Simulated scan of single mutants.
Amino acid sequence: MGRLTTSRRVTRITLEGVNRQRPDAIAVEEPLEIRVAGSPLSVTMRTPGHDVELAAGFLVSEGVISRGDQFARAIHCGGPGTGGADGNTYNVLDLTLAPGVALPSTDITRSFYTTSSCGVCGTASIDAVEKVSSYDVASDGIQVSAHQVASFPDRLREEQKTFDKTGGLHGAALFDVATGELLVAREDVGRHNAVDKVVGWALLNDRLPLRGTVLQVSGRVSFELVQKAVMAGIPVLSAVSAPSSLAIELAERAGLTLAAFVRGTSMNLYTRADRIVAPSTTPAEHETASVR
């Protein structure tokens, strides 16, 4: 596995006039080429670590597989110009699917590069962006208290050890509502990669679909994160920052509960608010839209 952090000397300047050089921990970003049966599928910029989970989750998000028994194995391999005595830099991962599982369609093959900030950049066709999930999240009868949801950002933050060092990684965590257990937490320079690592963990542990769970993310919610949650059968997605309009529209169509601006003692529920059990409240007040 590659390094999660590296160190660079920086010049720190303060407005109080204190200027000095010091070492600074930097989050590592490296390309990962994902192949299936030897054929290139995508290159994504990611933080090294949990690469097999990342690739497995990516295949779930793309609708290639939906069950653990459809995933056979993964090996890191070298390639032309990858360097090293054995040609293995751990930045090329070749996946093998179970016998009888169809290989990825050329319709979903990326134009071979995905940045760490965009999980659907490079999709061959805009029509292929919205996938059809094997799981119906709308029928999940999960009920979760608002108090429980409000605790998830802090619990995720406690697991972000590399963020503590660098301040440069997104986080995603999966919670079991019935037990309150934090099932898994992952970090990455790409918010979509962090979610793929969580979904990949679930696939490799035969836990799909993820009924009765909440996915907590550390940043904003874009379309792709809602899509990934739906593809994994996750009924509730919670975020500390804002959702996009397209994320809300997809969540509404899929029947996913989308909570955002989950901070401190408040949150905004954009879709399927019936799943969140609020404490006793005073009569609701109508507010005009505002900039947060």
Rank of each mutant, 00 (worst) to 15 (best):
G68C: 05
A128R: 13
E287S: 10
I108D: 12
V198L: 14
G79D: 02
V177G: 04
D274H: 01
A232E: 09
L103G: 12
Q70G: 03
S7G: 05
E130A: 09
G119A: 11
M45G: 02
L210F: 14
R12P: 08
A56S: 13
N193E: 07
T89M: 04
R155H: 02
I276L: 05
T123C: 11
R20W: 14
G100D: 14
V230M: 09
C121L: 00
G83N: 05
E53K: 02
T109A: 10
T96A: 15
R186M: 09
P80M: 05
M1R: 00
H147T: 00
P23M: 13
T162W: 03
T106L: 11
L97E: 13
D206C: 06
V277S: 01
T288D: 05
I126D: 15
Q143I: 00
V36W: 14
Q148N: 00
N19R: 14
V189L: 02
E252W: 08
L54K: 06
A173W: 10
A178T: 06
F58N: 13
T162E: 03
V240S: 15
C77R: 05
A242D: 14
M267W: 06
V18K: 07
A247P: 13
A273Y: 03
A172R: 08
G63D: 08
I108W: 13
R272Q: 08
V60Q: 10
A242E: 15
M231E: 09
E62N: 14
V129D: 11
T11H: 11
D127S: 14
T282E: 14
R73V: 00
R211Y: 15
V262C: 10
R67G: 02
Q70T: 00
H170T: 04
A85M: 00
P235M: 07
